[in-house]
Write a protein that binds this DNA or RNA. Structure first.
Lengths: 248, 248
DNA sequence: CGGGTCTTTGACCTGCCTCAAAGGAAGTGG
DNA sequence: CCACTTCCTTTGAGGCAGGTCAAAGACCCG
């Protein structure tokens, strides 16, 4: 097992964990020495499926993934977006049966880490267990905020809110800055995440461009008016529980 | 501090925990000997508010509570319903700042447990830590399912889905059975939970009564056609991750 | 340069919302 | 135990945000 990619693999997860809580050096080293199996995946491939009982967790090293759930008649709800450093199926450690699927949105590099190693890690390093727990709790906080958006915000506000969230999450791990971030997902993906149709997403995006709030071209989002975007969507970053470092 | 009410207080949380995972006797006893401060609250009272940094967790002993978030113009999104045995702000152990509020829906009895005692408990009893973690993960699973309902289900299906969920959760702790359960919330509360208006909730309920699916009178829900309700809402109980015991 | 995917546009439709008011139920004080 | 009050449910009429269906561009990658 080569060590160069592993090193990079672990760089991102360390950054991610540091973005949500202080991390001891001993804990960092323990994480870096986890055994991982690295895979390269195409876009739109499943990683774990609804109903599976996985024996590994999946760490995203590069590319984007999402959790989603399928209903009859081809309806799909995207539940969360995931980027480098995320472990989207960490919950499978304590809830063995998947109640949703996890798949890539873009080409992606992922690392599989055996449950056994992770369990061992959390037993030996209670601090890591606490950070992992905290991560899943923040995850839940993001679901709650998505519920608020779904239930109470207009399509326009909802899109604006999502863009603020994604920008801050990417910024927190060094993947965004200067009001510019990657957004390598289709309008249909956005629609499935927001509970709208791609037609309507398209019209909302045009309206946002018309108001010089954002531009979205070649898989890159540029936020032209951050404060305005915050105001419109009543965005309050508290729920992301990021370590302070980044401006909001 | 009287021990009779404490006993009852702990009965429900033990039942709740047993409904989601096996519980060791030593762990049960450790939980039963937690120090608690018991309060009686009126309906529609806040327990913890958005932005607070609580030093206690709140265990519901009797009555109903909900998590919610307020937006400008009086909009309210209810994020979850909570019943006896639940500890809705368990996450405050690892995420100190509340990113939502917690309040009663009915008159309620609650027990406050100091964070210190709970942290001590989880350190001494890793099994309890694991169950607590699992509980918060199941919570997140419920948020995900609510997202699916919000994004993809019609108002009718959404209401049906919620009723299935509430019935099973109540049944799991012995508060429901025979397709009959308490539902002491107003139509306005339901509306705020489902992202609809109370007017529309009212019309959906009438339609459900018309189809002899349910009756809802004097704060009691009777499910007249369970299988039909499951089918309509594409309800799959997996996401509740209940210990098998109850029929579905 | 060719084929598939993604975005954009138009016309029409509908599920749910808004506003407003009346009817019922349930708790409270006398 | 009644009368009052307050909250909750129900009903009606009209409106709009976002959906549906279908087709035409634009882009991207091999």
């Amino acid at each position: 097992m080569p060590s160069a990619p592993d090193q990079h693999a672990m760089t991102m997860v360390i950054r991610k964990l540091k973005s949500i809580a202080p991390l001891l050096d001993t804990d960092r080293r323990a994480i870096e020495s986890l055994p991982v199996r690295i895979h390269n995946l195409d876009a739109r491939q499943d990683i774990v499926r609804d109903g599976d009982k996985p024996s590994h967790c999946c760490l995203i090293i590069d590319g984007w993934a999402c959790r989603y759930k399928l209903l009859s008649q081809g309806k799909r709800q995207i539940l969360s977006f995931h980027i480098a450093g995320d472990i989207p199926d960490l919950q499978s450690l304590h809830v063995p049966t998947m109640d949703h699927s996890l798949g890539t949105l873009t080409k992606a590099t992922v690392a599989f880490i055996p449950h056994d190693s992770l369990r061992d890690l959390t037993v030996r390093h209670p601090g890591i267990a606490a950070i992992f727990w905290r991560d899943t709790l923040i995850d839940a906080g993001i679901f709650r905020e998505w519920l608020v958006s779904m239930g109470q915000r207009s399509a326009f506000e909802h899109v604006a809110h999502l863009f603020c969230e994604l920008y801050l999450k990417l910024q927190a791990v060094g993947l965004a800055g200067n009001y510019r971030c990657p957004l390598p997902v289709t309008q249909a993906d956005l629609a499935d995440a927001l509970g709208l149709t791609s037609v309507h997403i398209n019209r909302v995006l045009q309206e946002m461009r018309g108001k010089t709030l954002i531009t979205l071209r070649s898989r890159t989002l540029v936020i032209e008016a951050w404060d305005e975007l915050l105001r419109i969507s009543e965005f309050d970053p508290t729920y992301l529980h990021l370590e302070r470092r980044a401006a909001a």
